[in-house]
């Protein structure tokens, strides 16, 4: 379990993370979403003790990361597409991690096989493709069979087969092995397939925390018109929330009938009107509209 409480981090006059609180539960895959520069990587770095918070705390398995007895057996992390020296072989990179964590060297071959790169153990990491590097980073994270996995953009560079493997692996680790899996990614369609709950941040602050199951009950109404601004105003007067996309308006909080009624009352002609099941991408866009740094 990961608990983040009132975490704040500033760099000079810039507040990267502001009083951020959320929880990632064991047995679930938690997605961590936010626009570029929203503070995701800074938050993950603070959880892992790589950056120091100005205030607040981050606990992993009930303790600050730096106080864990043997972090490699408690937390596995994938950051920056893998943090490896280009001149070192995959095998040696993992051997060093095993030695530092007091793990048996046999784990190296096991995780290389598990992540599908067992045939290139002696190739230097600098000669790896982005996808192979990502697999190596995941291999390193799995070395200590940790209870908590923290992954920053783990799908970057993976081929379709690799993405499928990662999806199945992460879900299996959470649902069948009871591990806490915390994933940050920009690939929202992929995230919807993997995650159980979502934490959305923007400008360093928590915007929303919800279960992906809740999306099924949500509905987005899509209306097309040549008078988008007038329709958006009418929708908002009626209590809905509108996002403009060219001549299209995505509306949440109102039914299609209510949007039609609002358009009629405002004298706005519609060229089309329909309801769509809300997906993670739509919900995310709605939550973070206008909040990128």
């Amino acid at each position: 379990m990961i608990q983040v409480e009132e975490l704040t981090k500033t760099f000079g006059h810039f507040t990267a993370v502001k009083q951020l609180s959320f929880t990632a539960e064991a047995g679930q895959v938690t997605g961590f979403l936010g626009p570029n520069g929203s503070g995701k990587t800074t938050t993950i770095s603070m959880v892992l003790g790589l950056e120091f918070a100005d205030s607040g705390k981050a606990l992993v398995a009930g303790k600050p990361f730096v106080e864990l007895d043997n972090p490699a057996t408690a937390v596995g992390a994938v950051l920056d597409g893998g943090s490896f020296h280009d001149g070192r072989s995959a095998h040696a990179s993992l051997q060093a991690t095993c030695a530092a964590a007091g793990l048996p060297q046999s784990r190296v071959d096991e995780v290389l096989a598990l992540t599908g790169i067992a045939d290139v153990p002696n190739r230097r990491v600098g000669n790896f493709s982005l996808g192979m590097r990502q697999r190596l980073a995941i291999a390193q994270a799995l070395l200590g069979d940790p209870q908590v996995l923290i992954l920053d953009e783990p799908a970057n560079g993976l081929d379709p087969e690799g993405i499928l493997w990662m999806r199945n692996t992460l879900r299996s680790l959470a649902h069948e092995h009871g591990k806490t899996v915390f994933v940050s990614s920009h690939i929202l369609t992929e995230m919807q397939e993997i995650v159980d709950t979502v934490v959305v941040i923007a400008e360093g602050q928590l915007i929303s925390e919800f279960g992906v199951g809740d999306l099924a009950s949500g509905e987005t109404v899509v209306a097309r018109t040549g008078e988008v601004e007038q329709l958006a105003a009418a929708v908002e007067r009626a209590g809905g929330k509108a996002i403009r996309r060219g001549d299209e308006l995505s509306v949440t909080g109102l039914s299609a009938a209510a949007v039609g009624q609002a358009a009629l009352e405002a004298g706005v002609a519609l060229s089309s009107l329909g309801a769509e099941q809300q997906d993670l991408e739509a919900r995310y866009m709605e939550l973070t509209a206008g909040k990128g740094r």
Binding site: G49, L50, V66, L68, P71, A72, V75, S83, F84, A100
Partner: peptide, 18 residues
């Protein structure tokens, strides 16, 4: 210093935070 240039220091400190 080479650990910082390659960011391998991140792996080092996530295994040994001391």
């Amino acid at each position: 210093a080479s650990e910082y240039g390659s960011k391998a220091i991140v792996s080092t400190y996530t295994v040994t935070p001391d």
